[in-house]
Design a protein around this nucleic acid. Structure first.
Length: 266
DNA sequence: CCACTCCTGCGT
DNA sequence: ACGCAGGAGTGG
């Protein structure tokens, strides 16, 4: 999402928004074009992100965007054919370009916000994993140490730390040499510090490689990320661990796939 | 903690 | 035909 934010920023900052069009098919949160009418004529003054939440601010409010599993936010010439499943389109400037939100599975959302609604949304999330500071690290450390849940489940909880999904949760555990099934409360001080360092490392690596594309993910220019090639365990079942050579395994945890190396993750 | 929901698409 | 998919929530 940070790569989407970075690429979207120069494309929309200072642009004047037009009248949005919204498809009839409901996204995670149902919206209408009427609810986006207040954006018409407003100029974009911020493109921000906290965890996996992206926002485009304009006219004293803006749009909150979540990609879900298959969402993509792009800026394209209005003359180019929109992909199937493009659910929201917002004209930019004189209407030659538009901001598009495409999402086949519709687990993502585009939601308008006004006033302090964005702040309330952000307050429900833990510290952002990339921009985290010492205070944030202390909060994440406390949250992990006091939970009986597995560390993988804790990392997926956006109230603990914002921005870690299924890929980066597995990667953070690997970087910390910790089994994803370990209870948060079982970690030593040095282990929890290693886990937090792992979170920061894996997210930073992901941004450096412009995101992890398996199928749908692209940035605002429509370009795929290169990070999939640099992952240590995710989607590497039956392959050799890049650290110890043992065979990477996959199992189901909290209804989702977890990849890990039983050779070096304890 | 688990099962299951919302959806479409792709690979086997 | 079936299993699985980068998210997030609900209800038990």
């Amino acid at each position: 999402m940070e790569t989407v934010r970075k690429t979207l920023l120069p494309l929309v900052l200072g642009a004047r928004l037009g009248r949005a069009k919204v498809s009839k098919l409901a996204l995670r949160t149902k919206i209408t074009a009427k609810q986006l009418a207040f954006l018409e004529g407003a100029v974009v003054d911020e493109v921000g992100r906290h965890g996996k939440l992206l926002w485009v601010r304009a006219g004293g409010g803006g749009l909150c965007i979540r990609l879900g599993m298959t969402g993509r936010v792009t800026v394209e010439a209005k003359t180019t054919t929109a992909l199937k499943h493009t659910h929201v389109r917002v004209p930019l400037d004189d209407g030659n370009r538009e901001l598009r939100f495409c999402d086949p599975r519709r687990f993502g959302e585009v939601v308008p916000f006004v006033g302090d609604e964005l702040d309330l949304e952000r307050a429900r999330m833990g510290p952002d994993g990339i921009t985290i500071d010492d205070d944030g690290r202390a909060r994440v450390r406390d949250a992990i140490l006091k939970t009986g849940r597995s560390i993988k489940d804790a990392l997926l909880d956006q109230r603990v730390v914002a921005g870690v999904g299924n890929i980066y949760a597995a990667e953070a555990c690997w970087l910390a040499s910790l089994s994803p099934t370990r209870a948060g409360s079982s970690l030593s001080a040095s282990e929890v510090d290693a886990l937090i360092a792992g979170i920061e490392q894996t997210l930073t690596d992901g941004v450096r490689n412009r995101g992890t594309s398996f199928s749908d993910y692209v940035d605002a220019d429509g370009k795929r990320g290169d990070n999939a090639a640099y992952l240590h365990v995710f989607q590497r079942e039956a392959e050799g661990c890049r650290r110890c050579g043992a065979v990477v395994e996959r199992f189901t945890q909290g209804a989702r796939s977890t990849f890990w190396c039983p050779g070096c993750q304890r």
